[in-house]
Write a protein that binds this DNA or RNA. Structure first.
Lengths: 184, 184
DNA sequence: ATCTTATTTGAGTACTCACTCTAATTTGAG
DNA sequence: CTCAAATTAGAGTGAGTACTCAAATAAGAT
């Protein structure tokens, strides 16, 4: 993988992989369909990736990183901002949100690598929410804030989960309703 | 399936199916492992079920029905009761809870039958929560109560979802924290 | 232009899956 | 006890899976 062609092929494969995971889940994603979608033959796939698992892992890592809130921010956003960002992400990047949920559920069986990554990402998000909450409600002690943030983030994931079953589910509405858990 | 032996075999198969779905997910569950676990050969399996899908559907239907709160109750339980029942279910019947979440996530791809069943069950639960909430807070209008109930149930599912990733996650603690969404 | 190395080709392999079929065995109603 | 029907045994089928490999081609450093 030192020529331009290889890198481009690699990108196409990863994009196809991500799309398929969102649509079909981890197990429904096959080398055949990935290759067809990416316009590549199995030989090329295995020239660039060691295994299906490695490709999926790579694609999912990228997807999870993409979910991460902008790390530029330095403790400036409010809880409202964070909830809005969450809702926007779920509504605009439904595929990625679905990948996230799917991985979370499947991760007990699949690689501990992914499981760890999901957990770390979750923790990061909770921390971010907790900090925003503390700025808004400085009288709370840190543990209480962290607790509430954890409850809120889990609850938001529950809303996203339900959205995967019911497309018409109003994520924004319920997300903001749940926000009150933290602030009251 | 008219002799006793057939019924017993059927029960063993359904129990194995349910266990495997909880452990391995829908796609990870195979005829081979179901049969091994149930002490049965493929011929017997297909004497009793038309297909893998039918067996899974049957097992899951039973599991979801088992999740349903006691239908005897007639509007007597409080929101606290319902949250407690939810928590007890997740903690004592972790396998079933996991089946529920797995089916919910996979259902977009798998049968609409399951999807519908999950949605109906969800609606029933929301209704139950909304009624309890109205008894507690009669000043709320019905729509508002239903909204809050829906938010709470989704949030609780989010907690359960997280529990499938992190076994140490304290479902009870966060469930009760989230209860405040509805009551305040 | 040359020539090493990356990339692509695409048929092929070994394996697992859901599912079938025939023959043997067991069940229990009459 | 009899015997038709239910149940079980277990090898086998065809489709689909992840993955391989030797040969052809394309890329780009020199």
């Amino acid at each position: 993988m030192r020529y331009k062609a290889g890198l481009e092929t690699r990108d196409r494969i990863l994009e196809s992989t991500r799309t398929q995971i969102a649509r079909l889940g981890l197990e429904g994603t096959t080398i055949k369909t990935i290759c067809e979608d990416a316009g590549v033959l199995p030989g090329s796939f295995y020239n660039l990736f060691d295994s299906k698992e490695q490709a999926i892992l790579t694609a999912v890592r990228a997807a999870i990183d993409a979910v991460d809130p902008d790390p530029q921010h330095e403790g400036k956003d409010t809880l409202e901002d964070l909830v809005n960002a969450y809702v926007r992400f779920v509504e605009e990047q439904g595929d990625l949100a679905r990948v996230y949920i799917r991985i979370a559920v499947a991760s007990s069986r699949s690689s501990p690598e992914l499981r760890g990554r999901i957990l770390r990402h979750h923790e990061g998000r909770v921390k971010r929410f907790a900090e925003a909450l503390l700025r808004e409600r400085p009288e709370l002690d840190e543990e209480e804030a962290h607790n509430r943030a954890e409850a809120l983030v889990s609850a938001l994931n529950g809303v996203t989960l339900h959205r995967t079953i019911d497309e018409t589910f109003d994520v924004g509405h319920f997300a903001h309703l749940l926000k009150t858990v933290a602030t009251t």
